[in-house]
Design a protein around this nucleic acid. Structure first.
Lengths: 137, 137
DNA sequence: GGTATATTTGCAAATGATTCGCAAATTGCC
DNA sequence: GGCAATTTGCGAATCATTTGCAAATATACC
């Protein structure tokens, strides 16, 4: 494991939510180059040390988000108001996927699931004011 | 509904699988411009006449795929060998999403799920030859 | 039906995330 | 510690998608 890859992995591990490639690049400003971050993310995913999914968000557009694979495979909720992720805990799709594999004769090797909407915090604020506030920068 | 939007919608309705924006642009070559196709796709999604999701595929990279909303909300399997989609039928996540909403106090307004792996056809070919053949162009 | 106003379209260029080529630096191995 | 293999930095390229603006089309109104 090279220094750059270790730095990228620990950035992912230190985060409570998935990070976009560009945020990792930002966090590693001065540590390693943007191209290196992208290459390291590919390497980590290949090595099963990280997982990723592509998400569109009105604030950030289409970006790929990465999370360390230290914990069990899990899914996330994305708040459309504050643009943060909420951890939904370990994946609960095992049964559904096994059913689909059997029904349709497929071999499922990976899956992407995420939910989006309004998180509890933003919903609470919306109860008092007309609209949820925009996320802080 | 303008002519361009109708053309884009009928391209989606005529397709058995979700189409990437660029494939819609290709199908409507000479009918309307690429920028118009993108704008029409946004319009159709806003108007709830179409649904979309962003998918990464080794052959096509990151692209947004669109499907007409004529049928019930559904999910797809993406074959990593032939790069086609398999229709998995109507969404079965209702219960899971309701559980998560209750448990975590979230308001889920949309979700993205897709599975990927090897489809039945490609798996059958792989049984005879060493590797599944690449998709025809 | 004919015209004024609002919306949509085409075109070409911009944008933003991601990737690539290549020379220099780092790593893993003996 | 020295060398071949791999990785990194830098800058430029790529690709999907978006945008500005003038022309064309749609919709509202008379």
């Amino acid at each position: 494991m090279t220094r750059a890859r270790a730095a990228v992995l620990s950035a992912l591990e230190a985060s409570a939510e998935p990070l976009s490639a560009s945020r990792v690049v930002g966090k590693l400003e001065g540590v390693c180059d943007q191209a290196t971050v992208y290459r390291a993310l590919h390497y980590l995913e290949e090595a099963r040390l990280a997982e990723s999914f592509v998400l569109y968000c009105s604030q950030h557009g289409v970006e790929r988000y990465y999370a360390s694979s230290k914990a069990a495979h899990r899914h996330w909720f994305h708040c459309e108001s504050c643009h943060r992720f909420v951890d939904l805990g370990a994946c609960r799709l095992g049964g559904l996927i096994a059913d689909v594999e059997k029904e349709m004769g497929l071999r499922v090797s990976r899956h992407t699931l995420y939910l989006s909407g309004i998180c509890a915090d933003c919903a609470a604020h919306a109860d008092c004011s007309a609209h949820a506030v925009k996320a802080a920068p």
